[in-house]
């Protein structure tokens, strides 16, 4: 009987290993290990055996059953793997054919430059102020110490806006009117920058725009000196351009600052970049904003952004900055 059991088990193991499909394996499983299987028949015959024989036959039966069950499990695992592989082959993808339907989008060069500069100044302890692009005469000129017939008004080619009152409303010619709005709205100390779009009525070419951008920096506090102006420009220069850059100040004239200066930056290679204008805020400007110039002093400096933005990326014609051509916009 034990021999029969071992023979049946050996034959069954071979058949299990030869099962070609999961269905066939299931049928074998039922036939070889189910209630009607030969092994079950041997179990029923065990009732007539003595205790010792019962123990031996029972051991052989259990061993055979375990061997066959293990064979079924092993074969099932093999057949599962084959099926998964076939399924995988059927759904193969070539990843090199994938193209994004869209890209990550693009910030305009000028926006990138403004954000970079804002971050530098925020790091130096400044806030960012904004104002309207259409301005009244008071904020754009008069409060900034431009007399009505002051020759300096000739320096600013102005777009006048047709709102009835003659020459009262202009496209702002600089970001300085935001200085006035900040000083009118807030008591010192003031540590602010004012980036924004400005307008000049002058013919455009590759290096001049009628619509461009400036950034100004305004500090009003007790004890502020021309030395602080120079030191702050120097610190900003090194923070934004790099440690190898230097700056110098040359006397200049602006109605709203006195003393006034132009500031030039020296590149690490020794060449100079004329960047902007600056100076100590004129006492008349402080008075116009209700600030006592005997108690507070301050400085301001400002410069154009568009050339910085264009130069950084090798754009040689500033007029490109207003381009809406996707071939330009998606480069940055």
């Amino acid at each position: 009987m034990i021999d029969d059991i071992r023979r049946i088990a050996a034959a069954a193991t071979d058949r299990i290993a030869g099962a070609a499909t999961l269905d066939e394996l299931g049928a074998l499983d039922r036939e070889l290990l189910g209630k009607t299987s030969e092994l079950s028949g041997f179990k029923r015959q065990m009732g007539g055996l003595d205790h010792e024989a019962k123990r031996e036959v029972g051991g052989a039966l259990n061993a055979a059953r375990e061997a066959m069950a293990a064979a079924v499990a092993a074969r099932r695992a093999e057949l599962d793997a084959i099926a998964r592989r076939a399924q995988a082959e059927a759904e193969r993808l070539d990843l090199t054919e994938v193209r994004a339907g869209r890209d990550a989008g693009h910030l305009h060069l000028v926006t990138q430059t403004i954000e970079e500069l804002e971050d530098v100044f925020v790091g130096l302890g400044f806030t960012v102020a904004e104002g309207p692009e259409v301005e009244d005469d008071w904020h754009n000129f008069t409060a900034l110490n431009f007399g009505r017939y002051h020759p300096a008004r000739d320096m600013q080619d102005t777009f006048f806006v047709d709102l009835g009152a003659e020459r009262e409303v202009v496209m702002r010619t600089h970001t300085s009117p935001v200085q006035i709005r900040v000083m009118e709205g807030q008591a010192p100390p003031i540590y602010s920058i004012m980036p924004g779009r400005v307008y000049r009525n002058e013919a455009t070419d590759s290096t001049h725009l009628a619509v461009f951008h400036q950034l100004e920096c305004l500090v009003i506090d007790r004890g502020i000196t021309f030395g602080h102006l120079a030191g702050t420009i120097d610190m900003f220069t090194k923070a934004y351009f790099g440690p190898g850059w230097n700056m110098r100040l040359r006397p200049a004239y602006f109605p709203f600052t006195e003393p006034s200066a132009e500031f030039d930056l020296q590149r690490p290679d020794g060449s100079w970049l004329e960047l902007g204008g600056c100076g100590m805020v004129h006492p008349n400007v402080l008075r116009n904003c209700g600030i006592d110039p005997e108690e507070f002093s301050g400085f301001a400096f400002g410069f154009g952004l568009d050339r910085l933005a264009a130069t950084k990326h090798g754009v040689t014609d500033l007029r490109e900055l207003a381009s809406t051509d996707i071939r330009f916009l998606e480069q940055f």
Binding site: E118, F121, V122, G123, L124, G125, F126, T127, V128, P189, Y191, V219, D221, T225, F226, G227, H228, A230, G231, T232, D234, M235, R248, L249, R250, P251, E258, P259, S260, A261, H282, P283
Partner: peptide, 29 residues
């Protein structure tokens, strides 16, 4: 202030030492 500018011009801007803003301030957007 006009006289101050003349003094600065003839003293020389380059002879005015740089100074840093020392007051601690929180810059933010």
């Amino acid at each position: 202030i006009d006289v101050v500018e003349e003094v600065g011009r003839h003293h020389g801007y380059r002879n005015i030492p740089n100074r840093e803003l020392t007051e601690a301030r929180a810059g933010r957007l």
